[in-house]
Design a binder for these strands. Structure first.
Ligand SMILES: [Zn+2]
Ligand SMILES: [Zn+2]
Ligand SMILES: [Zn+2]
Ligand SMILES: [Zn+2]
Lengths: 135, 135
DNA sequence: TCAGTAATGTTATTACATAACGATCATGAC
DNA sequence: GTCATGATCGTTATGTAATAACATTACTGA
């Protein structure tokens, strides 16, 4: 079940996020960006973000209430354990996404030890990127 | 620098969270709970939560916009790498906190590979707990 | 006493997200 | 074709989470 087709609003939001390239955007920032394209209400953006998230084309950064275009392999395809990792620079705001199988395995093991059935996991690392450290 | 003393509001909020025992609470839920004790405005709760977070006595669950009393060893003391792990049951809402050094090490290694200086990391695992699975 | 600082209180506002309802547009069975 | 079905899209209103700005009170140590 291929989740039907991608709509106009989804495309607009996805493009806007890709243009941001590494910089997360909040839903309301996206709305402002896309007003010229005709978007008017938050719900249009939130619906698009939900759909795109389900397709793994964008990810939500929980600690920022913001969204990021996926830059990894899981894009269109299948689960890589759904263990996402994000390195968030608190200096410049850029976010780098990783697919780290080792960390995914550790999550699985931890879950198994406690009879917990994992469905999805995300790690958000806050810190300082190389550029910001260099000054 | 021991961060001064813990105040009345901090104590009220911390107690309320500990009473919940494994069940995360939102700031506004805490406010309702504590109205009988005299709390009236969100800011009172948010200030207490901020202070308690800095002392590592409570943690914020980013994916739930909710807060949980710390159940681990880092409580009063020092850093264990600040790599927190939470298993969040989407069935019953209970959350279990882990201190997992292996996962912390993996985060550090990943950061090192990319010249990223980590300050703090949290992993939130969504899934189903043993009780809910059993039915 | 009297400054300095930490804690608290109150009102208003901003930011993030969803509910509820209706209109539109495609698709495919008949 | 046409009619039902479901997906997409639009709008208004509302709910929920968090902070800004400013005033007040309480503790502490010259
Ligand atoms: Zn991705
Ligand atoms: Zn940076
Ligand atoms: Zn803890
Ligand atoms: Zn459960």
């Amino acid at each position: 079940m291929a989740k039907t087709k991608i709509g106009r609003n989804e495309n607009l939001v996805l493009e806007a996020l890709r243009d941001a390239s590494g910089a997360p955007r909040t839903a309301y920032q996206l709305l402002e960006t896309l007003r010229p394209e005709g978007l008017k209400a938050p719900l249009q953006v939130y619906r698009a973000l939900k759909s795109l998230s389900e397709r793994h084309l964008v990810h939500r950064l929980e600690s920022l209430n913001a969204y990021l275009a996926c830059s990894c392999t899981h894009g269109e395809g299948e689960e890589d354990g759904h263990a996402l990792v994000f390195a968030i620079c608190d200096g410049c705001g850029t976010v780098r996404e990783f697919a780290d199988p080792a960390l995914g395995e550790r999550v699985k093991a931890l879950a198994a030890e406690t009879a917990f059935t994992p469905r999805f996991a995300a790690t958000e690392i806050h810190g300082t990127c190389a550029d910001c450290r260099a000054g």
